[in-house]
């Protein structure tokens, strides 16, 4: 995974609460053996009607070159463990998700793939929900978010996830390097 760099972009707002992984990518698109190209299915049933025609949803015409930050209502990413959800959002063009609360498994899956999950304080989150298109600067090393014309805030991220994102470190490599400790644990088990 490449190193995560600070960036500025506009915030695209989906105000609904509890946006679940079946909205982010419907289950019928999970019959893939690849992780590539899933952006085509991101929010598919919000973007396309039953005949496959584009809907009036703002996601349809969204230019993700200027809107790389998704602000979602409270409890974003609840539901399944499918990693296809962050794969789809990344391939669609998002680089960070901001909400007042992000579901556990989605949050961990997102961070592992370079889609930065940011839990914002309630007040800042509410401001972002009411000010779609705000210019937002994300500084991962400084764990801070600057919002043009709005409340800036700092955010928590698990230190190792942050380290991996910043340095492009591979967590599997870290685990593989624990081989001796794993063997010792297995020896204690028997």
């Amino acid at each position: 995974m490449s190193e995560f760099e600070n960036f500025q972009s506009r915030a695209f707002v989906l105000p609904q609460e509890d946006i679940d992984t079946d909205q982010i990518i419907p289950a019928r698109f999970l019959t893939t053996t690849s992780r590539a190209g899933l952006g085509a299915f991101a929010f598919h049933d919000w973007r396309f009607d039953r005949q496959g025609q584009p809907t009036a949803h703002p996601l349809v015409s969204l230019d993700t070159s200027s809107f790389q930050i998704l602000v979602g209502g409270r409890n974003f990413g609840c539901g399944s463990s499918r990693e296809h959800a962050p794969w789809a959002l990344l391939d669609f063009g998002f680089k960070a998700v901001i909400s007042s609360e992000i579901a556990d498994i989605f949050r961990s899956n997102a961070a592992r793939n370079g889609l930065l999950p940011i839990v914002a304080p309630a007040e800042a989150h509410a401001w972002l929900l009411h000010n779609p298109g705000a210019a937002v600067t994300i500084d991962l090393a400084g764990q801070s978010v600057q919002v043009e014309g709005g409340p800036s805030f700092s955010f928590d991220i698990e230190p190792f996830a942050r380290h991996c994102l910043l340095e492009g470190t591979d967590p599997l490599g870290f685990l593989l390097a624990r081989r001796a400790a794993i063997q010792a644990h297995e020896a204690r088990m028997t």
Binding site: R35, S80, S81, R82, E83, I105, S108, N109, R112, N113, E158, F160, P171, L172, F174, L175, L176, R178, R179, I182, E186
Partner: peptide, 20 residues
């Protein structure tokens, strides 16, 4: 508990997970 696919790979390769 449920895990994502990257973690499925971690468990396949090391039988371990990184967890707080």
């Amino acid at each position: 508990f449920g895990i994502g696919t990257t973690e499925v790979g971690h468990v396949l390769a090391t039988q371990c997970l990184l967890q707080r």
